[in-house]
Design a protein around this nucleic acid. Structure first.
Lengths: 145, 145
DNA sequence: GTCGCTGCAAACGATTTGCAATGTT
DNA sequence: AACATTGCAAATCGTTTGCAGCGAC
């Protein structure tokens, strides 16, 4: 999503294009492959404009969520935010390294066959899922040898 | 896990068998197939003994967690507790119905082949995982027809 | 009798809210 | 000019902590 597309979404729904909203958008954009907690987003935004308040970060992220601009993921009790990309609509998995805590994004559809089994066995139709694998990434395995 | 086995675990590690610990254990035991938030556990325990304080619930659940008596799962920003059963050690999935919010436990190992793919593609070794499917259970589909 | 455990209330951290000032339209 | 948005500080919520008294051993 480009900055202009982003502004377009705000205008389309009659929300104002403010400096703070652009700031938060750009912060997320610059960290497109990370997963940031609210506090981290606030710190990064604050560095660029030390006038922004944390309440604005909360309100802005809530707005972005309701407009489908960001996606939020709950991992071990805290929420992480990332810009929505179209690939992640249904297929959204994370690998979390126990050691370095890095969060790796997985974008392929690993679960099609699993969802079919769930339908058969539990008569439950899956619309979305959240899958987190905990383990060790390559680097951390090598470091521990 | 029986009450006597539970007391055995406490004694084994030199923790005292108190009325409150038994109360929390029994509350979890009576709701073996549900997933309860802290607040709910407190309410249920409070009904049986309106002298118990919520701080005790927090401390007791922390203790149970460290002793492997309960398992806690983070779902959409809050933690849910349930008595540990041996089947759930590695294979622990949940189906959450969007409509009735019921949480259905899945105990079969659906992900063996997926974990192999993760190893190949991301060079990441999975030690544990948390999988949540969001969708519609049978009852809610019928109700909405 | 010792000391681990508990209830209470105060403290804490994360999030939300009310409101006057500001910025976008 | 109208009013949506913001920063600030106070309020609120869930969780943790310190401590005196109680209860298990």
């Amino acid at each position: 999503m480009t900055l202009e597309e982003f502004k377009g979404i705000l205008r389309k729904y009659n929300f104002r294009v403010t400096g703070q909203r652009i700031l938060v958008f750009e912060t997320l954009k610059e960290n497109e492959n990370s997963h940031l907690k609210i506090e981290k987003i606030y710190q990064k935004a604050y560095k660029k404009d030390n006038n922004i308040g944390i309440a604005t970060i909360y309100r802005t992220l809530d707005l972005f969520l309701s407009l489908g601009i960001v996606q939020k993921t709950s991992i071990e009790g805290t929420y992480y935010y990332e810009l929505m990309s179209n690939k992640m609509d249904h297929y959204h998995h994370h690998l979390i390294c126990k050691n370095c805590k890095k969060i790796i994004e997985v974008d392929s559809d690993l679960l099609k066959s699993v969802e079919e089994k769930v339908k058969e066995k539990y008569d439950f139709i899956v619309e979305n899922h959240e899958l987190i694998f905990y383990g060790l990434c390559k680097k951390c395995r090598e470091r521990n040898e």
